[in-house]
């Protein structure tokens, strides 16, 4: 498998009626890396994963997983991939162990169900019907099913859903172990905090398009020269947004009552302040904050902040 991409999407578009869920999406996940797939709810993350698993068929474009065509060779893909899907439901009448045994039989694997149950921390619930599991336990059970057969790629859709902080930490630990074993991991999240400590690379999806893709350190470098300027004024001139946005080095402006928040290069601070003064407002107070990864994520995904590319 060396040299072959774990996931390769080329120009994938998916329409549901009039709604465009994915718009000409190109994405590559390399063999052996942990890729965090970020974006707000409704950005198209689950649709992307559904295309990879042949749950939905793209309107146009082409998806390959581990070198196999997602449409024509889906069973080969699912034989080699472990999946934690989104919006799933466990079989209420089957026990935890029966779920794992089903996954093992389906993949013709030789894992020990008890070992996997122990690994995901639900050994004590092995013989209880899964219908009585909490959301977090069900999530652990399905993660256990995903680990069956030492998959070459793990596809995890919002894996931390329903987990408490300790559970989310165990989840990240398992993701790292799987990567160290040699698997690639592709997981989606709408919360950056779950991602930055574990990912080799992240992609940010918004309205069906990839708006940013980089390593975590690359993203940190990119925002290192950025800061957030919070300016309190006596009044906000009507055209202040447009004026500020026209400035060089300003990437985002948000106006809330008498508070103006500006994302800008460090060098543009004085220009921002003088522009506000020139527009007729009086600056009463201002503060600078270094931008965090969270700010960047918000800037990319929050509709209220207009990102100037």
């Amino acid at each position: 498998m060396s040299g072959m991409a774990a996931i390769e999407l080329q120009g994938v578009t998916k329409r549901f009626g009039d709604v465009i869920a994915l718009n000409d999406l190109n994405l590559t996940v390399e063999d052996g890396e942990i890729y965090g797939f970020l974006g707000p709810n409704g950005a198209g993350k689950s649709t992307t994963i559904n295309v990879l698993l042949d749950f939905v068929r793209p309107t146009s474009g082409n998806a390959r997983v581990l070198g196999y065509d997602a449409r024509a060779e889906s069973t080969q893909i699912r034989q080699r991939v472990g999946v934690l899907p989104d919006g799933y439901h466990v079989y209420d009448r089957l026990t935890g162990r029966q779920h794992l045994q089903f996954a093992i039989d389906s993949k013709d694997a030789d894992d020990d169900p008890d070992e996997l149950l122990a690994r995901v921390g639900i050994s004590e619930a092995a013989d209880r019907k899964a219908g009585g599991y909490s959301k977090g336990m069900a999530q652990r059970l399905v993660l256990g099913m995903a680990l069956v057969g030492e998959p070459e790629l793990l596809i995890l859709d919002e894996p931390s859903t329903g987990l408490d902080p300790a559970g989310a930490r165990e989840m990240r630990e398992i993701i790292r172990e799987e990567r160290d074993r040699g698997a690639a991991v592709f997981f989606s999240s709408h919360i950056l905090g779950q991602v930055d400590s574990v990912c080799d690379r992240v992609g940010i999806l918004r309205e069906g398009e990839l708006v940013a893709e980089d390593t975590i350190s690359g993203l940190r470098d990119a925002i290192g020269t950025q800061s957030t300027l919070v300016v309190h004024v006596d009044q906000t001139p009507a055209d202040i947004k447009q004026r500020l946005r026209a400035l060089n080095g300003v990437t985002g402006v948000m106006v809330d009552d008498t508070t103006i928040t500006v994302e800008a290069n460090d060098g543009s601070k004085s220009a921002v302040l003088s522009t506000i003064e020139e527009s007729g407002a009086t600056v009463e107070d201002f503060a600078t904050e270094d931008a965090s990864l969270e700010d960047l994520f918000m800037a990319y995904t929050n509709d209220e902040r207009q990102v100037v590319a």
Binding site: T75, R78, P85, Y88, H89, S106
Partner: peptide, 14 residues
């Protein structure tokens, strides 16, 4: 309807 088909079809079944 309830989503368990996603578990079923995450496994290598046609």
């Amino acid at each position: 309807e309830n989503g368990s088909v996603k578990l079923l079809l995450s496994l290598p079944h046609r």
